[in-house]
């Protein structure tokens, strides 16, 4: 059943990276319970625009939970209260009439605020650039079926590869660690035969780059796994640590 909600929003507003931010309060009236969270912000923004106020800046793109562009902390939880759900797929039926909702950007030393709820996540790209690939040029690949991969291995690699790079794991972690993100890529490639030749170098360089970018360490809080919209498992962190120590020990 579609219901209509009246909500109070406390939204983080910050003009730019070097400005001081603060919470502003907005009333969201007549919100349909069938709306997505982002559509609710759209509605507020349309009204702000008409009133001559700059709308709330927020990142979003595919709105079907796969591009990884959206994400804010809602009532203290990255991507809001629903498990395994990105913010764009969170619907307002999970809130009640009269609720107060606090919305703020990802917070981490490695993610600087650009404006309002928009942060700079380029550090995640830098981690991938450090080794999140298999060094193969275009052309000259052998026939695809020349490399056999057991179904079980392919499934595990796919579980890790499902990461959308949104950064919720970093925002969820009390240490702002990017270990779940980094380990997902290291795992995917270490599991597959194609990725084995560079596994040691990859693990060393990606972990060093991650540390150098100002991400924190893992202290087994497991918040990352709990908040990951793609439910990436912390088994990947254990796998990354194994790869890293193996590489460090052998080098």
């Amino acid at each position: 059943m579609t219901k209509t909600l009246n909500l109070t929003l406390k939204v983080w507003r910050q003009k730019g990276q070097n400005s001081k931010g603060s919470f502003e309060t907005y009333n969201a009236k007549g919100i349909s319970s069938d709306m997505s969270f982002l559509e609710m912000i759209d509605v507020i923004n349309e009204q702000l625009t008409i009133d001559g106020i700059e709308p709330i800046a927020f990142d979003h793109d595919c709105r079907e939970g796969i591009c990884g562009m959206c994400g804010t902390v809602v009532n203290g939880r990255p991507h809001g209260p629903e498990k395994g759900t990105t913010l764009c797929q969170l619907h307002m039926r999970h809130f009640s009439d009269g609720d107060t909702i606090v919305v703020e950007p990802w917070r981490s030393r490695a993610f600087k605020v650009i404006k309002d709820l928009v942060v700079d996540r380029s550090a995640l790209d830098k981690i991938i650039q450090a080794g999140g690939y298999i060094s193969v040029n275009t052309g000259g690949a052998p026939d695809a079926n020349a490399i056999l991969v057991s179904q079980e291995t392919a499934e595990k690699a796919m579980d890790a590869a499902a990461c959308i790079g949104c950064g919720a794991c970093v925002a969820a972690c009390p240490n702002a660690s990017a270990m779940l993100f980094t380990s997902a890529k290291i795992s995917q490639l270490a599991l597959l035969p194609q990725g084995k030749p560079e596994a040691a170098k990859r693990a060393m360089e990606m972990v060093r780059t991650m540390d150098g970018l100002g991400f924190g360490n893992c202290t087994n809080e497991r918040e990352c796994e709990a908040e990951c919209p793609k439910e990436i498992s912390i088994v990947n962190i254990a796998r990354m640590n194994r790869e890293f120590f193996k590489a460090a020990f052998l080098s």
Binding site: A141, L148, V149, A154, M158, L192, Q194
Partner: peptide, 23 residues
């Protein structure tokens, strides 16, 4: 079209597999 699949597998794209390990 066939070259594309070869290239993607070499890059580590985790395509679905049969029990025998083939695509």
């Amino acid at each position: 079209s066939g070259n594309i699949i070869d290239q993607c597998v070499a890059q580590g794209v985790p395509f679905a597999r049969e029990y025998g390990g083939q695509l």
